[in-house]
Structure formats: structure tokens, C-alpha cells
Write a protein that binds this DNA or RNA. Structure first.
Lengths: 343, 343
DNA sequence: TTGAAAGCGTTACCAC
DNA sequence: GTGGTAACGCTTTCAA
């Protein structure tokens, strides 16, 4: 048995069965109908079906030096990295756009401190790369530089770095404007103190939200006091405990949560402290997809175009891979305030 | 310029730069430290760093006839197919297990009626395949047969088909037992009528939940009436509208929802009808991850080991790809009832 | 310890 | 319309 462990059927096998040359089979497989006589094509197609032939992607990639695949690396400390609603929508959008163009998506989650070990980055197997970073700014910057040096076209989501590299593009939503919109909304109430709740782990988007929030408050004449409260993780229990503890000593007029899931835990903490939302305290979320509908009161939050960002990135990459330069190197998607009952 | 569009650095380039043979470089790259003199290795490593060399995965795959990659195809009508909390956890678990073994995960969502068109299935580029099916039983069965014929090792999640094929394994949770547990829990109350709410789209898991529910109720002496209510989609608004309409004409003693997100919409419908949960009506969910924490009242639901199912599948595949047969062809993960406030 | 050559399955190119 | 040949980048095998 000459055959390797994978009992793959090759073009040669089909050509032998159909009594034609390898090239003819190849032409049939790739739909070059004009190059093959109808009768021959029929015979070849029969053999293909009979032998259950599937083209070998590695061989094709090697020959064409293009893989028709894109890789995405997602830095996160949570093993269940895809459960984040922003990420799952972004990846869905990207994946679907690529599928439509007959491209494949390779996906890998990785702990921030092991970022550069990601298989997708160490081996060259994708025509382009995407990434979502997290961790201290310094580290994210280092990872960004590393990614740039790799070579293939690169799209980084939710970062605000500058890059002059021709093969790099940034796609993010306007988190700063989102934070600002929340601030303006809260300022309609009689507010003197705000707590911004966020996880310990750094995300650029969260920084931007806080920045937008604080900048509007700073410009306001009312001298609103802003504190930042760090939860050890994004887990429901951790957040609830952290907030409940804080509320034990003092109750701010509003709690701005870095994400909707955090806000869910915040609501729970308020409830357990006997605080009525929004009467006693206002609560807001961020990146509203579904959670805001489930909570009582429903959440005031900022809507995110995560799915669209993913598919837009796919579109950008397809252009770039088909010969054109990136049409945009820095794309900012607008967000919109959703007024629920919680603030 | 001989070089192809992708300006890739090859082993030959490195070997030229380092003044050694291609094989020596290959040995260095693959960590065969024992085969290379320390000094030579140093020189080669320098060249690798200098030239920014990354091994070409296609070439290696072609030569070795193994790709070190697994593909997963997920049938769903929802474009944002990864947002389903069960799926996102399952895929995270699988992806992480594979990453740890230096395997890559190719992911693709596909509409059920276009299932067989999925790139991942049409081209042979993965060492193994995973799938999650949906749609009418007939169609799922057809897709299952199709997948089996493809050849590579295959794991199908959340299906109850039988297969004698050596290269096929099934992994699912005990949805039937989950449905039964919910039924038994509800029977503790004075219950005469139950409505099972599910989306129009067929999922094997949902069928199993209903089956478990009905079988326990059927065995009970109290002649509980069970109706099935179909929501056009799983979308919050669709479900809420469907349920609210139903409640307009009659109010059952309990509503069993096919998933937690459905249950969220059901709660909302009850609220809008002025019904108090669980006093006036009991409500349950399924596949509890986080949603049950956010709702008020919190949901009574069934906890799912989705993440573990994913990583277990990865483990099974690794064994199979490294020479052993599948150790289990049909694995059923237990689920557990979570008693919240809603029932 | 290092090197040369063959071949993995496919496609571009050029003959027939 | 069809087919032969070379080459894509890598690793296995065997020779030096």
C-alpha cells in the first residue's frame, strides 16, 4: 500500500478511472467548462462522484501560494472566549462574509501572555490575519508590532494604535462617543457621583469608554465625582460581590458598567442592597445585544455594530487580497444610545 | 522577480543566508536539536529571525498528508450563529483543546439548505470534521450521511443517529433527561396544562427535550395537557409576540421554553399580560449559562456542559488522529436541573 | 553532522 | 480539446 494514512483520492486517480489526463480532470473540477468537451466532462464527473474525490487544499495552496483562508487570534483570559457577545457577533460576521467568498476562517483564542505562541501566528497558513487584543497597553502595543512584522495583511479590531504600514488596517467602534453619550444622558439627572465598573483585565475599548465618559463629565460645570471600580474578573459573581461590597460603604448616583453582562451583575448587587433602579441609583451597560432585554429594569446601554464590523473587515480583506490596497486603514463604526429603564 | 505574490521566505532562503543545507534549517525549525551542532543552530536561528521566516503550512501538510487542523460546520438559519451560548461554549472548548495540541480550528456557519456547499466540506483541507446540524429530521439525516461519506474522522454533536462507521462519533448532552427533570420538577406543583415553546426550526436537542418532558407527563396519573407552541424564529420579539398572543386566549399553568433566551422572551410576555411568575404561571428555560441570572425572577433551567463537550470532542479526535480508534462512538453528557425562582 | 534527491497533489504553461 | 512537464516548499530517505 503506497497510499499515505489519509486515503485520499487524487486527480491522478480520477484521471486513470476516467481515461483522461490529469489536466482535464483539473479543468473539470475548477469549472473551466469551456476547456472540456461536454462528453468528456460527463465521464470525468462520473468518476469524481464514484471515487468520492475532493480536491486537496494543501496542494492547491502550495501551487497557487494562496490559501483562501483567514486567521483570527483572540486574546482573552476567559477560556470560553467566544461567549462574549461582541466577539461572537464580530466573528460570525467575518466568518459569513468569508464563506460567501469561498474563504475559510481559522480561529484561535489565546491567553494574552501567550499571544505570540498562537499556532496561527507561528506558522504561515493564512492569507491574512485578524486580531483582538487585551491586556496592559504596553503588552497590546508589543503584540501589535509583532503582528505587523508577520507580513500578511492584518486587521486589528478595537484598538486605537497608529500605523503607517500599508498592509495594516484598524477597525473599531466609537467607544469613546458611546461613553460620552452615556455621560450626557446621565447628566440629565441630578447626578453628583458616578462609579465606572470594569474588569481588571485591560481592553482598549473599555479604556475608550471610560475616557469618553470622563471627558464629558470633566467639561460639565457640576463637578461630578467619578470613581473607577475594578472587578477581579468579568464573572457574574465576582462583579456582584465587588459592587455589593462597595455599595456597603457608599451609594453613588449612578453606576456605569463597562459591558452589559457586568451591568446585569450590578443590577443584582443593587437589588441585594435594597436599592431601587433607577430611582435610588442609575445603572447603564455597554454593547447591547440581548442582555438589556432580559434584565428588570431593562438596561440603558450603547448598541454595537459588532456583526457589521466583522463582515466589513471581511470585505476589506477580500479587496486587499484581490490586488487592491486597503481602501481604509482606520474605520470607526458609530454606536447609538439605547434608552432602557435603568437610567 | 521569480517570487509569487506572497513574498514568503522559504527554507532555501534561510539555508542560503546561513550557508547551510535546507535540511539543516528544517531540522532546526522542527526542534531536532540533537541533529544539529549548537554553533550551526545558532547561525540558522539568526538567519530565521533576520529573514522573518515562518514555515509554510501547505507545503508541510502536502508532504506529510496531515494538516493539523480540524473543521467544524454549524448549520443555522441565524447569521450570527456563534451567539448561541451553547454553540459558543462548545466551539470555545473544542478550539482550546485543539490549540493546546497545536491544531487549528476552521469554522463555518451555513444555512441548513446550503449545507453541502460548505467550503470546509467540499475541499479536503482538514484532518477531521465536526458538525452541528439543524432542520427537519429528514434533512439532518441526509446531511449526516453526506458527512460520513466524506471520509475523514467525524464528530457530530447533539444528534441521536446510529452509525456503525468506525470513523464516526456522536457527542451529545442528555436533553431527554433534562426535559424529564423539568417535568418532574413542575409536577410538584398543581399543574394541569403545560405549553412547550420552541422555534419553528428543528434541532434534535429540542426534540429530545420535548420528548423527555412529554414522556414523564404521559406516565403521570394527572393527565396534564401539553401543547406545543411554535415561534417563527428564536428572536426575542418573535417569541414574545407569539407567546403574548397565545396568552391572550388562555393561560396554561406552566410554559417550558426550549432555551433560556426563549424563556427570557416568555417572561417578558407574561409580564406584559400582567401575569406574575411563578405565582400565576411557571416558566422554565434550558441550557443555563448566564441568562438565568439576569432575568427576574431568575430562571429555573437545565445546566449544560457545552464547553466540556467541545473539549472532549477535541480529545477524542486527537486520539483518533494519532492512530487509535475512537474510544467512544456515542457519548452522552449528563445535565442538571437548576432551580431558580421562575418555577 | 550535513547534504542531495525524490515526491506529496495541484496548476500554469506550452505542445500536440 | 487534450496532455506532458515543471514547479510550489517541505520532509523522508539515503548517501557522504
Amino acid at each position: 500500500m503506497k497510499r499515505s494514512r489519509s486515503n485520499s483520492v487524487t486527480l491522478a486517480d480520477v484521471s486513470r478511472d476516467a481515461g483522461v489526463s490529469v489536466m482535464t480532470v483539473s479543468n473539470v473540477v475548477r469549472g473551466r467548462a469551456d476547456l472540456v468537451k461536454l462528453e468528456t466532462r460527463r465521464r470525468v464527473e462520473e468518476s469524481i462522484a464514484k471515487l468520492n474525490y475532493r480536491p486537496n487544499l494543501s496542494a492547491r495552496s502550495l501551487r497557487l501560494s494562496q490559501n483562501r483562508s483567514v486567521g483570527i487570534v483572540i486574546a482573552d483570559t476567559d477560556p470560553a472566549y467566544l461567549t462574549d457577545p461582541f466577539i461572537s457577533r464580530l466573528v460570525s460576521g467575518l466568518s459569513n462574509y468569508l464563506s460567501g467568498r469561498d474563504y475559510t476562517l481559522d480561529i484561535q483564542g489565546v491567553a494574552p501572555e501567550r499571544f505570540e505562541n498562537a499556532t496561527i501566528l507561528r506558522k504561515a497558513g493564512n492569507d491574512a490575519l485578524c486580531a483582538i487584543l487585551c491586556g496592559p497597553r504596553q503588552l497590546r502595543k508589543a503584540h501589535f508590532e509583532y503582528l505587523q512584522k508577520l507580513g500578511p495583511p492584518l486587521i486589528v479590531f478595537q484598538e486605537v494604535f497608529q500605523s503607517r504600514a500599508e498592509h495594516v488596517a484598524l477597525v473599531h467602534q466609537d467607544d469613546q462617543a458611546g461613553g460620552a453619550a452615556l455621560a450626557r444622558h446621565l447628566l440629565k439627572r441630578k447626578i453628583r457621583s458616578i462609579v465606572f465598573v470594569r474588569p481588571m483585565l485591560d481592553w482598549c475599548a473599555v479604556e475608550q469608554r471610560e475616557k469618553g465618559l470622563r471627558s464629558v463629565l470633566a467639561k460639565d460645570g457640576r463637578q461630578v465625582e467619578v470613581k473607577t471600580l475594578l472587578a477581579p474578573t468579568e464573572g457574574f459573581d465576582d462583579v456582584q460581590r465587588t459592587v455589593a461590597e462597595y455599595l456597603g460603604s457608599r451609594v453613588p448616583d449612578a453606576i456605569v458598567s463597562a459591558t452589559d453582562s457586568l451591568a446585569g451583575a450590578v443590577l443584582s448587587a443593587c437589588e441585594s442592597r435594597g436599592l431601587s433602579v433607577p430611582k435610588d441609583i442609575a445603572v447603564t451597560g455597554f454593547n447591547g445585544f440581548d442582555v438589556w432585554r432580559y434584565t428588570r429594569p431593562s438596561l440603558t446601554t450603547v448598541m454595537s455594530p459588532a456583526y457589521e464590523m466583522g463582515s466589513f473587515a471581511g470585505e476589506l480583506l477580500m479587496q486587499r487580497l484581490h490586488g487592491d490596497p486597503f481602501s481604509k486603514h482606520n474605520t470607526i463604526f458609530p454606536v447609538s444610545l439605547h434608552e432602557g429603564e435603568s437610567a
